[in-house]
Write a protein that binds this DNA or RNA. Structure first.
Length: 111
DNA sequence: AAGCTGACTATGG
DNA sequence: GCCATAGCCAGCT
């Protein structure tokens, strides 16, 4: 974008998340240069519907691996179903072996 | 223009 | 080990 706002940067990073992988809000925020802006990442997801392209927000969870934002998907089990569909095991709204599925943008994308 | 809010995170009690 | 509080940044009212 000509004027990439924080939102758009977040969208771009989230779209770069490979299938079957997940990341945390803090990791994305850190990649964008704002470690403490984890909340903004979540807030950006709130505006993901505003974006033309689909944003796999279900691949973004909190640092605990918990599906905190599942409620924003229009259903409580939608997020879980999406993750399971990608091969990620989810029990009680929490990703199993989260660190194993974890995808760090700052590490994978590098600068 | 100023203040609140929010799908987080870290730290303290 | 769990609950409460503070810090964080940028968009939205």
């Amino acid at each position: 974008m000509a004027d990439p706002s924080f939102f758009e940067k977040v969208f771009e990073v989230v779209r770069l998340i490979p299938p079957g992988r997940v990341t945390s809000y803090g990791a994305i925020a850190a990649y964008l240069g704002s470690v403490g802006a984890a909340r903004m990442v979540g807030w950006a997801m709130n505006g993901s519907h505003h974006c033309s392209e689909y944003v796999p927000a279900h691949r973004v969870v909190n640092r605990n691996g918990t599906l905190t934002g599942k409620h924003h998907f229009g259903g409580s089990s939608v997020m879980k179903q999406l993750l399971e569909s990608e091969g990620i095991e989810v029990i009680d709204d929490q990703i199993v072996d989260f660190s194993k599925h974890f995808w760090d943008p700052a590490k994978e994308l590098r600068y």
